[in-house]
Design a protein around this nucleic acid. Sequence first.
DNA 1: CGAAATTTGTCCGTATGTATC
DNA 2: GGATACATACGGACAAATTTC
Lengths: 263, 263
Amino acid sequence: MSSTPSASDFVAAVPSLAYLDRSPIDTDTPQQPSRCDITMDAIKSYIINHKLVPGDSLPTETELCQAVKASRSSVREAVRKLEALHIVKVVHGRGTFVGDLSLEPLVETLAFRAMVKATSKQDFSELRNVVQVRRSLDKGVAESIVAALKGTEQPELMEITDRMVERAEHGDSFLDEDIAFHSRLLAYANNTVLTQLSDSLWMVHMAVLPSLGLQVSAQLKDSAEAHRAMLDAALAGDADAYRRAVDDHYRPIDAILAAALDR
Amino acid sequence: MSSTPSASDFVAAVPSLAYLDRSPIDTDTPQQPSRCDITMDAIKSYIINHKLVPGDSLPTETELCQAVKASRSSVREAVRKLEALHIVKVVHGRGTFVGDLSLEPLVETLAFRAMVKATSKQDFSELRNVVQVRRSLDKGVAESIVAALKGTEQPELMEITDRMVERAEHGDSFLDEDIAFHSRLLAYANNTVLTQLSDSLWMVHMAVLPSLGLQVSAQLKDSAEAHRAMLDAALAGDADAYRRAVDDHYRPIDAILAAALDR
DNA sequence: CGAAATTTGTCCGTATGTATC
DNA sequence: GGATACATACGGACAAATTTC
């Protein structure tokens, strides 16, 4: 299929993100773009210009070298950066493909940042902030969710909350049900960025909590009830009650994190 | 200062993020971790174990090679991936440092995703979703903001909104004032993750909009008024009014994006 | 099944550009 | 300016994974 791509396939198409952060390190250095960064932008432009979608294959390393006129090392480093951002996906022996464009890079950075702050400064606020953002998202979409669910039947969501209370009564935790509930509920906002962002924040939470030696446990019963209250409020069309239920739901976990802060 | 680091400095400390997405590409392949990924985790562990913070310097490439027992190429590729995530920052001729751990990787991925969907599928919903998430965040923290500002004086915020209405009356846009207003307001939620996330979403918005040939313009006056209404509601301690003002504020821009969707 | 071709993974050596002293 | 330390860039060689025949 693909004849070796020409250099013109790689020109300008993707917006440069040259605003933002002067990092604490670079004092004033303009620091001209390296071959690696040029190649990175070129590959991004190639994807845009060819209207590729996740899963589509990209030219081989050697083809990229010719097109961008860079050495294999430089191309490989550029591809690595794009891989870290999930913009491309590399499979040994098969080739390079357009990545899933998921928000996992955010998870990686946030989780690491929480670890750094926790270990270097004994500052656990980062994790608490992550959870509070998730709570804000849940509350912020209250009206959309309530509008979508008002007067409907939600047997699947009902079943999930039933399992929660059941497991809570046996003293078991219900992490799977928890994430499933929030994902399904937020899905009614019809916004993939929202649901993926919420899921990502939850992953940060789950990845960092055990590393800090904190336990989830505690108030299982109340948490299960809060989920049910959220659902009831949504079905009843009561946005205020929904927001209150969200607060009730996050109160126990926030208490744990707040306690870890003082200690 | 730093004697050449030993291998033991790099062992396990950082939580693996091996959950999540099977991408649309990899069918079932277990795909053992490459030298590059091992090195990546090792460097992350080094940062955690040594309690380094943004700006601190890391061992040189050659030292890293000896410690991890990998070639320069592998180490460089690992560093590139970490650089893409803003976990490290590399300065030519000086060395490698701990990065700013900002949320720019999210901006990069989201902006690119919006471009891909827009150009390949004529699907502009991604950008609209980004804006709606930002709106949800603003609404979700209404109660915190209102609680923090109720009964206070806010001369700086007042001045910003004054400049907005002034510029609106002259037919000028006020992007700088807009971002400044939201940043300062959200700052009262006392949550760095929240403010940075909001800023990042705004950057995605600004980066993608012009690339799609869409204009911001439109209803400058209403937008300026809505900002003032948000501030008034906060000072008055009225969370409901605050949320309504947020909706008013986002209505014009959402209308523009919705129109782009239909066309 | 096996051999060959394709493609990425890893390593090495060398030369160059950049920053610091 | 010179010396040193460091990252950048290149090209070649071989290994490992995958596909194809």
